Simulated assay, not measured.
Amino acid sequence: MINLFTFLVEKLSLLCNLKVFFAATSVQGPDRPTQRGPPLRRGDLLEVPRTLFTHFGIYLGDNKVAHLIPDILPMLTHDRRLLRSVVTNKRLIVGCVYKCASVRVDTLEDFAYGSRILVNRMDGGAAAKALPGEEVARRAEALVGSVPYSLLWNNCEHFVTHCRYASAASRQTEQFCEYLKSLIRDQRSILVTGMLGIVSIVFFGMAPSTTLPTILIPFTLWMAG
């Protein structure tokens, strides 16, 4: 039952976030980023606000940023020239669907994608103290390459918190899970999913593909609530 619930949460989060990723990454193209304050230092944790989420990276110095981003291309080719090109919306979305990502090093401009950069904003609210900048950068560099991806359990925020605080966590994931819990606690969610299941049976007939979701999904929501 726990595995089924985890599967449902993953799929729901995927559907919710694919639109978010597409809208957020297609707002504007790479441009000179806006960054206020003192010069960036090696090991700084960078945040780039998007439309409905925040993208994170670790500054490596020399105008380079390491960041974890969904990308399908590493599964299709080993051509380094192609892999070094900026990740497009299609590459990102398909990589997200197939849970394929990479920790890659891009220029500050490509990472920021024209957005304003926030520096080390997590430090004040983090449970652990930030590691020395050089160690943070080395941890990030050691992870460069293809990695499995999950919107909930292994995203760009998990990557940077692992590097800077030695403890992977994602505030965005926690907030999203709290939102899902509020939906699950709402008994109307169970009624709606049950009614949709009955409608699917009426229109498509009694079959495992229609009957099982009609029973299992409302039951899972009821048990989880």
Rank of each mutant, 00 (worst) to 15 (best):
L118I: 11
R116P: 08
P38M: 03
T214Y: 02
H78W: 05
R164W: 05
F56C: 08
V199T: 11
K129M: 14
Q28H: 11
C177S: 07
L12S: 14
F56A: 06
R164A: 09
R121K: 14
L46P: 02
E134R: 07
E174G: 14
L191P: 03
S13R: 10
L46H: 00
P218C: 03
D123E: 14
V20Y: 09
L118V: 12
A168P: 15
H55Q: 05
L221C: 01
N17K: 12
G125M: 10
M206F: 12
R91H: 06
F204G: 10
V97P: 10
T161K: 03
S170T: 06
P132A: 05
Y59W: 09
D31R: 14
A130R: 14
R104N: 05
A207E: 11
V48G: 13
G125F: 11
R139S: 06
C96Q: 09
G43Q: 08
T6L: 10
L76K: 08
N154T: 09
S26N: 12
S209P: 04
L118W: 10
W153D: 15
S115E: 11
Q175P: 01
T88Q: 00
V86R: 15
S150D: 02
F56S: 12
E10P: 01
R84I: 08
V147A: 09
T25H: 02
N3V: 05
P208S: 04
V103F: 10
